[in-house]
């Protein structure tokens, strides 16, 4: 891809969207867009990460994100190892830094980390020589998800600036929502968060978003409706009385979607709870749902991130 100006991230890791400036984000999305095109053409770039080692270090189960990173790495020619560490053995925490020391000794170049604790990838990043990519940490951030969402929106709507994006559901526990809020706000979109007050984080308005507790008002004239996964344990914790009540007031169905713009797209980071936060008829509607395209863009975005970070590595392959 000669002649391409490669974007430089502000650090050697990708730990969060917060702190990235619009030029970083635009450049990453542009590069990802070009990878999306290559992927559709069936072309690969297997020399780019040749000789580089990528470790997928997952302390939390995730088939989707892990597979996406694996595919992205393989398309760029990296050697890939998947490590799934059972959460029970990590609860003592010591294992996290022990693992860091082990991975360092193996001369890992790129480390993709998912962890149930906010800040865990940042802690690892202090201890390893590899470039660390946060693949989701606790309720903090999931930067590549926000990038793939932005790329999907940009392809469908041609822009991010000025769009009304409604992020709906369990915002309190959502790292996807946080990363999206930071990214979309930085790029000039108008972000709303919609959900019951028990699932909206404290001081949410201080993040520069509009807060709504009524789906109809929240979706009014929205260009993009982004649904979040509601985990069953939120009901056990008493934050939501029941799944049926949640679906009635905050689940996305055709009636609620009518309040959005007629050309509004529907997104979901997956995996979906059909009948809880989203009606199957909407999730599977090819006119509205871009959930499949999100997955496709996920690979392209991760290729772009791996490419950029590998270029910043000190040790040459």
């Amino acid at each position: 891809m000669s002649g391409f100006t490669y974007p430089i991230l502000p650090g050697r890791h990708l730990l969060a969207i917060e702190g990235l400036q619009p030029p970083h984000i635009s450049a990453l999305l542009d590069l990802a867009e070009s990878y999306a095109l290559l992927n559709r053409q069936g072309k690969t770039q297997r020399d780019l990460l040749k000789g580089r080692t990528l470790i997928n270090l997952f302390f939390e189960d995730s088939t989707r994100t892990r597979t996406s990173f694996e595919l992205a790495g393989k398309r760029l020619g990296a050697d890939i190892v998947n490590m799934s560490v059972s959460t029970s053995s990590v609860n003592k925490g010591e294992t996290l830094l022990d693992t860091a020391a082990t991975l360092n000794a193996m001369n890992t170049d790129l480390l993709v980390v998912r962890h149930a604790q906010s800040g865990a990838p940042a802690l690892l990043a202090q201890k390893v020589d590899a470039a660390v990519i946060n693949a989701g940490d606790g309720t903090h951030e999931h930067p590549t998800q926000a990038l793939l969402d932005a790329l999907t929106i940009r392809r469908r709507k041609g822009r991010l600036q000025g769009l009304v994006v409604a992020i709906c559901g369990d915002v309190l526990h959502s790292r996807v929502a946080r990363s999206n809020i930071h990214l979309l706000s930085a790029m000039g979109a108008r972000v709303r968060i919609v959900g019951p007050p028990t699932l909206i984080p404290a001081a949410a308005a201080r993040l520069g978003v509009e807060v709504h507790h009524d789906m109809r008002a929240g979706l009014s004239d929205a260009d993009v409706v982004m649904m979040l996964r509601l985990q069953r344990e939120r009901m056990a914790a008493g934050l939501v009385p029941s799944a049926r009540e949640f679906f009635r007031f905050y689940g996305l169905d055709a009636a609620k979607l009518r309040h959005a713009r007629p050309d509004a797209i529907v997104m979901h980071p997956g995996p979906m709870n059909r009948g809880v936060e989203i009606d199957s008829a909407i999730a599977d509607d090819p006119e509205r749902s871009v959930i499949g395209e999100q997955v496709e863009m996920g690979v392209a975005v991760r290729m772009a991130v791996l490419d950029v970070l590998a270029r910043g590595l000190r040790r040459n392959a």
Binding site: E18, S118, G119, D137, G138, T139, H140, E141, R175, R178, P201, A202, A203, A204, R206, L207
Partner: peptide, 15 residues
Amino acid sequence: TEGELATRMGLPGIP
């Protein structure tokens, strides 16, 4: 402490 910073950091807050 629950608030903007804890929200940004994704940390469970204490009001």
